[in-house]
Amino acid sequence: MKQIDFSNSPRIDQVGIEDRIARITARSIKKESKMQGLLMALNMIDLTTLEGADTEEKVKQLCFKAHHLHDDIPGLPTTAAVCVYPNFVKLAVNELKGTGVKVAAVATAFPSGQSSAEIKLLDTKMAVDNGADEVDMVISRGKFHSGDYNFVFDEIAMIKEACGKNVRLKVILETGEIGTLDKVRQASDIAMYAGADFIKTSTGKIKPAATLPVTLVMLEAIRDYYYKTGIMIGMKPAGGISTSKLALQYLLMVKETLGGKWLTNEYFRFGASSLANDVLLQIAKQQSGIYQSNDYFSKV
């Protein structure tokens, strides 16, 4: 493949993006399409805990919740994955054996990415060796801002190599630190061409995290990449998506930008911790006709 000039990524017009988002958020997603969308959303969640205070008990509880979202309601799907720090991967893999729920690990000196290549590699290897199905890496935002796109590209390629074919790599752009939509597009292109299986908005540690406009820019980058290569790259907005309504708007945006094939957890994920409960609350409401108290749904 000929060398791609990442300094010349397609331009993004922010006003135009916001206009498009306004069209999407004006859509009315009701009745059976709402129910279907909610179930889909549940199945796309990467149930996440990434705290310094995480304990083995907490990770265990999270893993149980991932495949027992709310046993009161029969027929619920599992979440797509559980997302933890590398040191909990072994435990999570054990807990989730046979459930179909994947284990994702953040790596590469998450969340800042401020470390050496060796340490990032070791971090990744630790996750992979312990049995992670997916690795969520962060890009080096400092290098990106300084214009060293080749460094960013090479680093992603190196981590993808360490992941191997069977471990899917999600590349976190940390769009809240990237600044403009032009730059989001540019970082998306770098990540995809360097070997990302998924591109992901945020670590969840920086505000703003995922937004509809940023995600639309990334979906359009995925679409352009698909036009050219026929390769389907996944998308994961993470952080800041805590309501069902917003989740449904994301799904509709995916449908209208990339079509129905992307509407599975193979190609779309929500990185979220509190979204699941709001979706459960809505599903219970769709079934019973009344909103229940939050206290009927387990926090973890």
């Binding site: 399409s33 969308g37 036009y227 509709l252 449908k255 990339l258 079509g259 129905g260």
Partner: peptide
């Protein structure tokens, strides 16, 4: 033009009527 890959917009998930 180079060959491009087409996107399939059919989907099982469709919007219910919202009159």
């Amino acid at each position: 033009m180079k060959k491009t890959h087409k996107i399939d917009f059919s989907s099982d998930w469709n919007l219910a009527p919202a009159p």
